[in-house]
Design a protein around this nucleic acid. Sequence first.
DNA 1: TAGGCCATCTGGTCCT
DNA 2: AGGACCAGATGGCCTA
Length: 279
Amino acid sequence: HLCYVINFTRSCVYGTTDENRGAAEEVEEEGEASNLRRGTHRKNANQGRLDRVRLRRIEANARERNRMHGLNNALDSLRKVVPCYSKTQKLSKIETLRLAKNYICVLSEILSSGKRPDLLTFVQTLCKGLSQPTTNLVAGCLQLNTRSFVSDSGGESFSLYPTYHHHRGPEVVGSGSVDSTRPLRPFGSLCGPYGPLYDTPSPDCPSPLDAGTISPPMSFNGIFALKNEEPVDYRSCHYSLRYCSVNQGSPVDLDPYDIHLRGQFYQVQEELNKPFHNQ
DNA sequence: TAGGCCATCTGGTCCT
DNA sequence: AGGACCAGATGGCCTA
């Protein structure tokens, strides 16, 4: 098969050139018999070398393909453990990496503080640097209103107006760029106080009992409650207090706790990463 | 139709 | 010498 490929490639790419070169060599070889013999040997040697080079190239291409497939498989694995997994609407490679990085930041923050992060911080961190479509996608998974947490300009000043929807099933989110008919994986498909919001399982998102594709427990809901709890009135929880005021038109400020948390977080993160960094 | 994303090929570089 | 890794080029597909 390789011989066939080599010959085919040669005939496609080098066909006429080879012919010309062959003709020139033939003219050259019209001399003495010894020269002819030498020329023939040289031609065969060159041909053999060319074949080896092309064979190596073909093999290298195959290895490169495999390598990239491995990379893509790893990216697929990453997609599955990152929030917002959907088989039908895959995140791009770059967005997957960005979201994963943000997700790690959120999880590190939780580990370092041992406390529930502020919803505001959670969403901001998760969507930091993501494109608008991906932000919409994340919002779709969270069932939040995207306009509520998109950075307006420099990425520093956020206007957060998250709205919780007390109806069932997906809905068009934000600017409407999220296809609500797509089976997005609900963030809260496992359990948690916000569970009733997401009680329509997606075909993409099998039950956690199904083997294989269990999403990480650290979904949005999982973070805030890993066990079943009674449904919560969101308007009375400590997140919604702020959002209620937002919905009434007041700007939202990061409270001192958040700022403290962030400073602390980076310190702890540095400590955690120390062993993994070169001096 | 332009732009984004992707797969593939390819040559260069580094390492074993 | 050969393999791994990388980045640039290219063409196909899809979507706004």
